[in-house]
Design a protein around this nucleic acid. Sequence first.
DNA 1: CAGCATGACTGAAGCGCTTCAGTCATGCCA
DNA 2: TGGCATGACTGAAGCGCTTCAGTCATGCTG
Lengths: 362, 362
Amino acid sequence: MLSVDADRRRRPTLDTVAAAVGVSRATVSNAYNRPDQLSSSLRERILETARSLGYAGPDPVARSLATRSSAAVGFMLPQGLSGAFSDPALSIVLDGLASTVDGHDHSLVLMPGDSTGGPRPSIVARAQADVMVAYSLPDSAPAFDAVAARGLPLVVIDQPVLPGSARVEVQDFLGASLAASFLLDQGHSRFGVLTFALHPDGVSGPVSADRRSAVPFRVSRDRLGGYLDTLAKAGVKPDNVPVWEARGSDRELGRLGARWLLTRTPRPSALLCASDQLAFGCLQAARDLGLTVPSDVSVVGFDDVPEAAYSDPPLTTVRQPLADKGRRAGELALKLLAGGRPPRPTRLDVSLVQRASTAPRT
Amino acid sequence: MLSVDADRRRRPTLDTVAAAVGVSRATVSNAYNRPDQLSSSLRERILETARSLGYAGPDPVARSLATRSSAAVGFMLPQGLSGAFSDPALSIVLDGLASTVDGHDHSLVLMPGDSTGGPRPSIVARAQADVMVAYSLPDSAPAFDAVAARGLPLVVIDQPVLPGSARVEVQDFLGASLAASFLLDQGHSRFGVLTFALHPDGVSGPVSADRRSAVPFRVSRDRLGGYLDTLAKAGVKPDNVPVWEARGSDRELGRLGARWLLTRTPRPSALLCASDQLAFGCLQAARDLGLTVPSDVSVVGFDDVPEAAYSDPPLTTVRQPLADKGRRAGELALKLLAGGRPPRPTRLDVSLVQRASTAPRT
DNA sequence: CAGCATGACTGAAGCGCTTCAGTCATGCCA
DNA sequence: TGGCATGACTGAAGCGCTTCAGTCATGCTG
């Protein structure tokens, strides 16, 4: 402990190096940040001395203070990382984002959410980032106020418009509607819907009518709405469509919900899921119950994660360009950072990918 | 652009608030950080004024500079986030870590690696974190020097000891050896091994003898070594065991490698994989080739990710306590931050989980 | 050779905050 | 009433860096 403290206290600074070389602090700073401002021989000498003194370069924090920029983008998640990373869709988005900002020498600060459906405001208030990206937080999450209070630029992904923020999103409603139409065309008439969280309260279970109103997660709202509205237009009353809400989007929660859905009477001949993970759970549940997909029951997912092509059977699903979503968000973040105005929202396309988990109703 | 700049310039600071309330800057600071240092009525007044002025609390960067602590832990990855997050094992570790540090109001800064097998030194040098966690980087990655140069405390996961660093690791060699012994006991004698990267150069393919030496990734080294040494002790010469190196650890790369392994002559009756993801790829490859698991070929994985219980067939695999690994790393990081000395390495247990992807040789 | 552009380096003013040694009433005890 | 502990607040010294307006030789032009 003592020695750590001592280490800290002794760490050389710009001044140390400047004194050792016999130049001004500004010159040493220039040696690192503006090589064109000094002769290369002097620069070499400075760098060499720095090395021998154990000086690792300008302190990032002090640098950030002086430049008023921390070269980092904050990423706000609706839940803890556990839930987050078990969702491959998020991983892909995050990767797209990370590679974009990393390419511009910005780092990524992760801000996990809690039961309120987003990071705590105190976390946001203290995060060392100069632009924030929100990923599918509930509408009016407290985190948004915290971002606004700091006056940080904001990019939202899968989120309704917020004043002054840039936005990238996917046509979730349309995608869901494509899937529902497809199944209707295949002759199905008894449906079940499996959605992920409608509310951030961590509840799983059958969805009552009142829980279906004022859904704060836009994605859930649109996918569920896209399914139910399309069915309703075709004459399938929402009241006759059992809906299960899973508190997260993973395979096991999907299995649980699907078990419930597949034991309703009459049994649905088609299951519409809000994500591929949930759909994988359905495949499992069907197996558990001795049902065959797709002859006994058709299943569609949403996202088209890579695994959807390899499941057994391969999944019919709604494709959205996940990596693009992340990349685009990264570009927007960098643009806002550079002082750009938020452009009009980027809307990404969806399409239905037909594989083997669906079949015409026999 | 103008307005953003103006916004920036106008943002209130502690001084603005202090002046507005008519107290000293120190008192405003105390209102936020040491409520016991002033009367609660004054504190209320300060907070109220701050709110009305649009002051969001002390600037995190300035605060970090003054306190010489950025309340963040850096996480260094061997690859880009894409590869990283497609690996559920990493996600789980990261979640354990994140929830631990988040509970102590520390944030998480991600530092993705590149083709050198770790984050670029420049990234490390500029990262605003006061402790670093390295996850399975290659031995002597340049990132380590950068950490050392900054004098930051370091926690390594799955990594050989580095002077002054804390360490948590899993008994990979033992785990691999358990799996190999098990298959030997089951009567198998023709094996194939599927490993993830031995070197950070992004090469996939059959592994030659020279590539097998001086493997910089400890995990790869130990798992591969555990497999081959155990087989060798039982009389199965390493030269007779085909080994495929996948450049990453995902299902598709596994499938590719398994296709090669399963088309060797004689065909292996058992496949030993360095990860569950690779093993899932084997299951797929076997299906592709019209082989049945486990009657035609047995497959074992490594990690025991949740999905291993649900694959078809469920995977026999080596279990390691992934979440614990992350949590423990988080605790160590916090401990080092508090000035603690690195304790002796934490060694986590492994065990073999038998499921349905293995069978006695017929 | 005067005049001037150029290159190389410096001084000092911040960036916004924390912290610690004080200062100054106040109230209490003997 | 003197002495002193206590609570409330302040002044000023940093934290380590960037940046911009200079300063000062130096060499080039006409």
